[in-house]
């Protein structure tokens, strides 16, 4: 198919092809993002900022469709559960090799 002459009836072009996607699906997606980022330790304001950012197209589209209040409700619900805990990661301490002794002269 020539690049500059697309066939509008070709489903690969996806012009005007309706795919299932409704408010219910969008709400589930918005809730999934809220859950995941709350688990990562993001706070309420940080997660809400993610939805308001137009560069994150999926989250932003949910924000546009559902509205700020509904998104805030979903985020509150997730944060209410996941902010109860904090994940603490402790690295194994590096084994420090013994350093050779050095003579340090006092300046005084």
């Amino acid at each position: 198919m020539p690049y500059d002459n697309p066939d509008p009836t070709d489903p690969q072009e996806l012009v005007g092809v309706e795919l299932p996607g409704d408010e219910c699906v969008t709400r589930e997606m918005a809730a999934a993002f809220a859950d995941e980022f709350a688990q990562l330790g993001y706070n309420r304001a940080q997660i809400q900022a993610l939805y308001r950012n137009a560069f994150y197209a999926g989250a932003h589209q949910a924000w546009q469709l559902l509205g700020d209040e509904e998104i805030a409700r979903l985020v509150d619900e997730s944060v209410n559960v996941w902010s109860r805990v904090r994940y603490v990661v402790t690295d194994r301490p590096d084994e420090i090799e013994a350093q050779p002794l050095r003579l340090i002269r006092s300046r005084s």
Partner: peptide
């Protein structure tokens, strides 16, 4: 939610890190 600790080990069986749940 449980206050579980998960510990990761590397190739030689050495501990790499551990993740613990803490209540703030």
């Amino acid at each position: 939610l449980y206050n579980d600790t998960v510990i990761a080990f590397g190739r030689r069986g050495q501990e790499l890190f551990r993740t613990t749940v803490e209540e703030p």
